[in-house]
């Protein structure tokens, strides 16, 4: 029996963008206020899970042709590389560089290397969560 879930699919398509933008906001806010790469990654993964719930694994995989294992590897390299980079400079592991820049649109902005580490954590969390969910959903 084919069920007709037009309302759920339309809602999922709309809400996906809201959740994903909120995850980007949480990820960017993570330095001074609550948030960070882990929560943002979980939210982005839950946005994709909502699409998988409304549609199916095949459609979502066609929409996002991402190999999540490679995504996890890229995230690990980014996080560990950012953490290990100061050791080549003679500083301790996990040393944190930051400076103030004058960006054209945002004005005076502080850019931190902790952001790169957080981006790695984001990619790892999304990759691992989606790998788990795909491998759970694939077996009958």
């Amino acid at each position: 029996m084919k069920t007709n879930d037009v309302i759920l699919q339309f809602t999922a398509k709309l809400v996906f963008f809201i959740i994903f933008l909120f995850s980007v906001h949480i990820f960017m806010a993570g330095h001074y206020t609550p948030g960070g790469g882990f929560v943002g990654g979980l939210l982005a993964a839950s946005a994709i899970v909502l699409l998988i719930l409304a549609f199916d694994l095949k459609t979502v995989q066609a929409g996002f042709p991402i190999n999540y294992r490679i995504m996890t590897a890229i995230g690990l390299v980014l996080a560990l590389g950012t953490a290990a980079f100061p050791m080549f400079d003679g500083k301790p592991f996990f040393t944190h560089y930051f400076d103030y820049f004058d960006l054209p649109f945002f004005g005076k902005t502080s850019l931190h290397t902790a952001m790169l580490f957080d981006a790695g954590v984001f990619l790892v969390v999304v990759g691992v969560t989606m790998t788990i969910i795909q491998s759970i959903g694939e077996d009958e």
Binding site: T3, L53, D56, L57, K58, T59, G137, E138
Partner: peptide, 13 residues
């Protein structure tokens, strides 16, 4: 409603 949460291919059923 359906018994399983994640289905692999929705269009063939």
């Amino acid at each position: 409603e359906k018994g399983d949460i994640i289905d692999r291919d929705n269009s063939s059923k």
